[in-house]
Design a protein around this nucleic acid. Structure first.
Lengths: 236, 236
DNA sequence: AATCGAAGGATTGTTGAACAATCGATAAAT
DNA sequence: ATTTATCGATTGTTCAACAATCCTTCGATT
């Protein structure tokens, strides 16, 4: 519906450069609430805001120079992504994942990623997986730990993308965002990712060779090991 | 609505022994925004609000006797569930699923449900699946089409619950909520569900017998057929 | 001294009103 | 008929206020 109107306008106004330009120039200006959410998301990912931290509406509103109501909308967005938890009448807090949550997150990942890789996917999608692997190699060569981490996330994002489902993609991004919440505890350990690199390479090769079942098994083993490590670091 | 304060006051004064009782009696009073979202969700599921319908903030605020800001928060909640779509500066509209969306939704369902049933699940979880099947039989015996539909949704919810993952459960509820958006077009056709009943029974039996792979195959075939039918009804 | 209960302060939840920005449609002009 | 200008309606955002609720501190009671 919405996209059809834009399309029809584009075709009907083939001569008039104005309307097509307007349609093309249509810069998506994120709402203020969205930008607040983005900023908070960033601070959450960077570890500036640690799990359990309380987020006071008035403070954030003042800091970012926006209204309390707008902050409120941003909170709603973040809460829907589980990055933040609302305690009624008490405020919102940075979500802190407990042992059960870690297992739960990995359950979701196993379900989606393994299923996606079993499906194979288009050549371009496979190429994206390969690209993520190479990205990781480059980061490793440059001793860029941060880059290694994001490359790893790109890798798993690309695997989910094999399924070609918009919804699965957004679900995966949200899960990855959740994971970033407790990753920086382990991210200091450089060996954490170094081992993954070889795994990714192997999985990618199996995928490229069309050995989907083997790729799936490798991925599954990888996820199990990863969960174990996380539980260790986070463990009590 | 306005008497909610009296209710909370009554509970707080009811008991003298404080903390444990308070923790247990803690009646979850949904915020006004939540109740607005609930009401809209209901109307969406019932087909009162059809896909594409525009939801004007002021109108809804007036109708439900709440503030515009509160309606706005409810919209944010519904938008995060994809039940509603925001068009910047234009308003929110009831989401209308197009052909691609239907396929996408079924992709998510195949991924999650098949994976869940392959895992088997605890005896109680399996019992819940059986319960949903029986619920469907009862509804069929009573010629209760509405009941048949909800029983079917319980069935698939129970299947996902086999995985024992909170996150997968909520993902599934959201997907089911999305499907309800375009289901009432097909819901008139009583034969739509009648065929499913036997399928559910068969899948459940395989699950109870521990023949997980067969159960998974049956479920997969079921979902494929279901998607096909939906595409047909909705199709072009 | 320890427990319990009653103010006090702070923050959230919700409302209402205001205003600029933007969109859609209608009317005017070329 | 196409373009332009105008107008009305609606959204996006802010501000200010208030009740409800929570946490803490401080007394009071036993």
């Amino acid at each position: 519906m919405a996209t059809s109107s834009a399309a029809t306008r584009g075709t009907s106004a083939a001569v008039s450069s104005a309307s097509t330009a307007a349609a093309r120039l249509r810069v998506i200006v994120p709402s203020v609430a969205d930008r607040v959410a983005d900023e908070l998301r960033l601070q959450l990912a960077e570890g500036v805001l640690l799990p359990g931290t309380r987020l006071t509406e008035s403070t954030i509103a003042e800091d970012l120079g926006v209204s309390r109501n707008t902050v409120r909308e941003a909170f709603a967005e973040l809460a829907s992504e589980r990055l933040v938890v609302r305690h009624p009448n008490r405020g919102v807090f940075v979500a802190s994942l407990e042992a059960g949550d870690i297992h739960d997150v990995y359950t979701v990942r196993r379900t989606i990623e393994v299923s996606a890789i079993r499906g194979g996917g288009s050549p371009e999608a496979v190429a994206a997986v390969r690209a993520a692997v190479e990205e990781g190699k480059l980061a490793a060569a440059a001793n860029d730990d941060e880059g290694l981490g994001t490359a790893n996330q790109h890798f798993h994002g690309a695997i989910v993308a094999l399924a070609g489902s918009r919804r699965l993609n957004t679900i995966m991004s949200q899960v990855l965002a959740e994971m970033r919440l407790f990753f920086h505890k382990a991210t200091m350990d450089a060996h954490f990712y170094s081992g993954y690199l070889k795994d990714n390479e192997e999985i990618c090769e199996a995928l490229e060779a069309g050995e989907l079942e083997r790729a799936a098994e490798l991925l599954l083993a990888y996820l199990d090991r990863s969960e174990e490590k996380q539980a260790e670091v986070h463990g009590e």
